[in-house]
Design a binder for these strands. Structure first.
Lengths: 216, 216
DNA sequence: AGAAATATTAAACAAACGTTTGATTTTGAA
DNA sequence: TTCAAAATCAAACGTTTGTTTAATATTTCT
């Protein structure tokens, strides 16, 4: 008698994954609170009760989605920001990979960003935990080298948000910009990565500040 | 008999404004959909029915808030981006004023950004209308001069989101970063405006691109 | 003062919410 | 085949949702 090709739990994955897939899509387009569990169950083609069966609650489902996105983002940071090369090289390859990552996980990104400022005490701890780790990497791999080379001290709590916002801008505004332009007119992805890298690097490593200042 | 100092409708303003005030605060902290009208009425210290009496519906209330924020932002753009001075001067004073504006209307900003990607058909038209006007100003005052001076053609649908995201980063991430650092460690407001201006200007007008590129 | 317009109120509406329950079906190994 | 665990299901749980209604209070103007 031949043994099964899949010895252990591969079945539940189907429904579970369909739920996550549908949830990310709906949360990104309609928002977390606007999306009802019945609507989600219908989109995932599962019974309503399956959501609480697999995830316990709606909030746990959201936390799972946030964790997936944050952990991928943090992995890229640890892998690409560290490693060989000078500041420019490392930041350059980091941004290039993050742009691809954001493009690929666009809905995850939208869910994460739109839920960012909301201060549900059950959610905010999760976000802060991930942010803390990310800030640590940025401090070590960007802020310290930058201070060593140029003497400029910019706190990582400033660099971190700036960097991610800069990269995410394209995707965050995509729905609105599509409505504005009718779909056309956006930069190609690689060109966008290139431009973002240039803006950020020139911005933090370029010639001295202060000479750009003028009156009101 | 002396005539009234305020001949027309100044009374309803009290309740109406308290509702808007409470709504902006709650929408920013809890999100639009998470905020119930009864909770909002309690926070504004008005009767539940007053909200629909003044605004017609919850969505109309949100639209009003978005309109207030967008129109203020567009006013600054028209006033500061146009006017005298070269590109650097104009962008510099624009960013300085926008940073103050975002700081002053922080809750309006959070509401606007977190509701940005959600594609409620009743809301998206409003956002696109404002975005269209803003894109027009940026095209005329930034993209065209930039192309004339440096030959670089960056679409306004790319510059616009990038610029606002860069400036808004500090405020969008503020709730999370406070939890991370415990409140301390953020740049002063004027220093933040200065740095943002430098990053953006160096980024789009600085030395040639392409030399920052390296391998994976 | 009286009439008209505007504000405010308590109460109720149907609909939708997230969650739970208990029974039934499907599954994987003994 | 048998048995226990996992998955699926329909139905109902009690709240809460946004909105409406109709009556009352207040203001405004003639």
């Amino acid at each position: 008698m031949m043994n099964k090709p899949h010895p252990k739990k591969i079945k539940p994955v189907e429904s579970r994954d369909r739920i996550i897939q549908a949830a990310v899509m709906l949360f990104a387009r309609k928002g977390f609170a606007e999306t009802g569990l019945r609507e989600l169950a219908a989109a995932a083609d599962v019974n309503l009760a399956m959501i609480n069966y697999f995830f316990g609650s709606k909030k746990e489902l959201l936390k799972g989605i946030l964790d997936t996105f944050f952990s991928g983002y943090l992995d890229i940071a640890r892998e690409k920001l560290a490693g060989p090369g000078d500041l420019q090289t490392r930041v350059g390859r980091f941004i290039r990979h993050v742009v691809d990552y954001f493009d690929c996980y666009q809905d995850y990104l939208l869910v994460t960003i739109t839920e960012l400022p909301h201060d549900d005490p059950e959610i905010i701890a999760h976000k802060a935990n991930w942010a803390r780790k990310m800030i640590g990497v940025i401090e070590k791999e960007i802020c310290l080298p930058l201070a060593r080379e140029t003497g400029r001290k910019i706190p990582p709590t400033c660099i971190g948000p700036m960097l991610v916002s800069l990269i995410a801008a394209r995707f965050l505004f995509a729905p609105v910009m599509e409505e504005v332009t009718g779909g056309a007119g956006s930069l190609e992805l690689s060109a966008y990565a290139e431009m973002t890298t240039h803006v950020f690097l020139q911005g933090i490593t370029g010639p001295d500040w202060k000479e750009t200042r003028n009156q009101t």
